[in-house]
Nucleic acid binder design. Sequence first.
DNA 1: GAGTGGTCTAGACCACTTC
DNA 2: AAGTGGTCTAGACCACTCG
Lengths: 243, 243
Amino acid sequence: MSDKMPNTADRRLPAYLRLRDELAARIAAGEWDASEMLPSENALTRESGLSVGTVRKAVQQLVDEGLLERRQGAGTFLRKPAFDSSLFRFFALRDGEGPSTIPVSRLIARTRATAPEAVARILGTSDCVRIERVRLLQDIPWLSEDIWLPRARFDGIEAVPEMEIGPLLYPFYLGRYGQFIARAEDEVRFGKATEIAAERLNLPAAAPVALIERTAFALDGQALEWRLACGAADRFRYRSRIS
Amino acid sequence: MSDKMPNTADRRLPAYLRLRDELAARIAAGEWDASEMLPSENALTRESGLSVGTVRKAVQQLVDEGLLERRQGAGTFLRKPAFDSSLFRFFALRDGEGPSTIPVSRLIARTRATAPEAVARILGTSDCVRIERVRLLQDIPWLSEDIWLPRARFDGIEAVPEMEIGPLLYPFYLGRYGQFIARAEDEVRFGKATEIAAERLNLPAAAPVALIERTAFALDGQALEWRLACGAADRFRYRSRIS
DNA sequence: GAGTGGTCTAGACCACTTC
DNA sequence: AAGTGGTCTAGACCACTCG
């Protein structure tokens, strides 16, 4: 083993995991963009002093984690996580299941705010920015969202012109603040719509809703965002595969 | 490559996939039981004429699919799918989250029956056996289940003494009928309790419930069981990790 | 101590994409 | 044709489990 391996978090981890960590760090640092190929396996072999098999294992790890995408004959590329819109996976779409109907976002409010204690504990601070928005599919409001971000990492986001923010927040976080969302955890339960949510979703007061609580994390495990999304219970539908 | 590889489904698949298929077939045939080690990597290398790396890849495939479990220093073993009781993962347990409180099953009825069309389509026949049961945790009814099985594969199951059927059906399917459940698909939605379900769960009429529809499959992809489970919505809670 | 899985090497050839 | 990832070999040594 060469000494070119980085020492970050070097607890005598296997070489392929250290290489994985190094690559993950470089990805997070924005070294490559979505269109360009990462170094080939050959190149990584030379750079790292490891053998092909080991390099492949490191890359495969990142593929399994959803960060990279391999295309035979072409190269290895970033795979931008598409799960911003994936809250919709909890909901049954209309019959056509449109071959990718585009979700539209309507921003309702962005304010500096003090996070409730439970949220502050997750984000590590109560000094936050709060974003409220509604997400629509074919002009019908499906989801009402209440999003909390630590102000230290997203300073000034409440003042960014709405035009600059696309329908998907995670790419925006990355492009504007260099914050990369690597994974997220969702928790679903059933409840009743708040007055505000009911109004935003055109539902009767206290209508039954599915509540999806999400915490999104950076590569290093730091929580970057917390949100509570809410949608009509009778449209809720979730599939899962077990084995 | 030796010619010892089986020809089943040999569409010029990579060697590791053919070995995977062969092992999966031998597992399904009941060649090993839960306590005994499968052939070591060394042994498989000799038997198959492949190299260690390739053998490892085949075994890893089955591990990823949840069929096998590797224990360093000890060997590779069957991993009996524990997901019969896993419907409970959808529900929040009481505070202690008991370090594995045992689910109890109460059989209510077993009858020959003609499956509704939707179920018949999934199972491939309308000639079925129907099992109704309630599942309890610490004497509290949590889930009401309505289970349909194709009679051809589970003949006489309606007459098996209740003693012989444990709290978990899948091990019973395997032991008594040689039917191995390899995976399952769950779909969750939100609805109102039927009269019968409400009564069985001690809920008010038409109480809000979570409905979990499950189809369970054999290794070859054949649907072996369909069930509809139902539990109080306010106890429903589901976590998922995305990346 | 014997046997198991876990990691790793230093190559080879093949299938595929791109130019 | 050149370069990419996909498969595969024939070993090696290490970490761990078990009797």
